[in-house]
Every structure is written in structure tokens, then in C-alpha cells.
């Protein structure tokens, strides 16, 4: 038998190239994902003086991460599943994990881009600067936080098959996160909502981002938030991966 299985590295390279190209062709929605947190940051200029730079940056990055994971990633996999794109890939001699790994790599780059866009805007418009270790540490927590929303998106795509329903669900969740997240954070919605928000996947991600921007101010509270963030990601991913179907069975 002279059958040769392609090298996993070759397969991954081909998938990555295609997935990044696809992302590039959809650059309008990519730009939107980057612009929304920047606009929020700029419109919060007045708050920076009261609540501090880390507060404004961490909220903006969180919103960018939610848009990336929940909207971008989730809707793309729901659509591609519905079109049979995954099934065609799966009948090739590729280990299944490579298909998703490539998709997630694209999202990791998006997370870095969102974080960088907010950093630059914060510097340009609000004169917020962090220490070099603050920047480095924040990229790291942004990836952890981004994974929460990617796995939340994975869960949505695992529980819901119809791409239109996935789309409206992710929009709704995005909207709720922004409302409860931003306004709850400001205390506008009362103490209870503020507490609930604080330990929600919005609040914990925001907390670890803010904590890593000023590593000196990292508290016990921040550590608990980090732990919870990891827990959320693990739970969402477990459900999302377990319930995920590769075809939509129309």
C-alpha cells in the first residue's frame, strides 16, 4: 500500500491560509468589530478622569472580545456548517481538530487586534498609557478573556443549529452583555445588578483585564475573577464541544 497521509502541518497551513483569506474578504465586519470598542472608549472620555484609564480600557476591550467571539466566530461556524463546508473538509484525510484549530487561530489574531486598537485609541484620545509589563500582561488576559466568549459562542453553535437563530441569539446576548455590563458596571442599574455583573462573564473578564493593566493593584478579588473566568471558559467549551454537530441535517 502506497497511501500517504498528508502531514498535519501541511494541512494546518492550508486551512490557516484559507481561513485568514476568508477573514480578510470579510474585512468590513472585522473593522466594525474593531471600531465599536474604540467609539465606546472615545465617548467615555469624561469618565476616564473619574474612574481611571484601566476602567475605560478594560470595558472597551471586553466589548471587543465579546463581539469577536460571540458574533464573528459563532456566526461563521454556524454558516459554514449549514452550507456543508465542514462536511467536505471532514471527508478529507485531515484530523478533525485541525479544522477548528485553524478557525480559533484567526480569532486569536482578532483578539490581539481588538486589544491593540483599544490601546492605540486610549493613547491617542485619552492619553492613557500603561507600563510595558501592563501591556504585555493585558494581552495575555485578553486571550484568556477572549476564550470565554469563543467558548460561549461554541456553546451557542452547539445548542442551536439554524444559522439565523444562531445569529439572532448571539446579537441578543451581545446586547444584554453590553447593557448589563456597561450600565451595571457604572452602578446605574442598582447594587444587585452591579454585584451580579461583577461576577458574570462580563465582569470577571473586565476585572482581570483591569487588574493586568496595573499589576500592582492585582487583588484577591482579581484572582477570584481569573479563576471564575477559567471556569466559565471550561464549562462553555465543554458543553459547546460536546453538543457540537458538524452538519445541520436539513
Amino acid at each position: 500500500m502506497d497511501t500517504v497521509i498528508p502531514k498535519t502541518s501541511t494541512v494546518l497551513a492550508a486551512l490557516l491560509r484559507a481561513d485568514f483569506t476568508t477573514q480578510w474578504r470579510n474585512r468590513r465586519s472585522v473593522i466594525l468589530t474593531l471600531v465599536v470598542p474604540v467609539i465606546i472608549l472615545i465617548s467615555w472620555k469624561g469618565l476616564v478622569a473619574i474612574k481611571g484609564g484601566a476602567f475605560a480600557l478594560s470595558n472597551s476591550i471586553t466589548i471587543g472580545l465579546i463581539a469577536t467571539g460571540l458574533m464573528g466566530y459563532t456566526n461563521a461556524i454556524a454558516r459554514d456548517r449549514d452550507k456543508g463546508i465542514f462536511q467536505r473538509l471532514r471527508v478529507a484525510p485531515v484530523p478533525t481538530w485541525t479544522i477548528m484549530a485553524s478557525r480559533i487561530c484567526v480569532q486569536l489574531v482578532m483578539i490581539i487586534l481588538v486589544t491593540t486598537a483599544v490601546f492605540i485609541a486610549g493613547n491617542e484620545y485619552d492619553k492613557i498609557t500603561l507600563t510595558p509589563s501592563g501591556y504585555a500582561f493585558t494581552y495575555f488576559t485578553a486571550i484568556i478573556g477572549g476564550l470565554v466568549y469563543l467558548s460561549l459562542g461554541q456553546m451557542v453553535a452547539g445548542l442551536i443549529t439554524n444559522p439565523e437563530t444562531v445569529n439572532s441569539t448571539t446579537r441578543l446576548v451581545y446586547f444584554v452583555f453590553i447593557m448589563v455590563g456597561m450600565f451595571g458596571e457604572l452602578g446605574i442599574l442598582g447594587v444587585q445588578v452591579h454585584d451580579m455583573e461583577h461576577w458574570s462573564p462580563y465582569g470577571t473578564v473586565k476585572t482581570i483585564l483591569a487588574g493586568s493593566m496595573e499589576p500592582g493593584k492585582w487583588t484577591n478579588d482579581t484572582s477570584i475573577a481569573l479563576l471564575l473566568t477559567g471556569l466559565y471558559a471550561a464549562i462553555f467549551a465543554a458543553i459547546g464541544i460536546q453538543r457540537f454537530k458538524w452538519n445541520s441535517n436539513k
Binding site: 500517504v4 494541512v11 492550508a14 484559507a18 476568508t22 474578504r25 456543508g84 478529507a92 485531515v94
Partner: peptide, 28 residues
């Protein structure tokens, strides 16, 4: 195996050459 599924699709955003390049790569 070479396969054409009953309802196959490829990423609609990719150019035709890119679709072929993707599958050339996937098959090594």
C-alpha cells in the same frame, strides 16, 4: 477517496484558485 458530497460547498469568499489551493494542501 475523492469525494463529491450531495450538497457540498466551499467558502463563498474564496477565489476559485484559493479553493483549489486549500484542497491541494489538505491532500498534501
Amino acid at each position: 477517496l475523492g469525494v463529491q458530497l450531495q450538497s457540498t460547498s466551499f467558502q463563498p469568499e474564496l477565489f476559485v484558485v484559493e479553493v483549489l489551493e486549500l484542497y491541494a494542501g489538505i491532500y498534501g
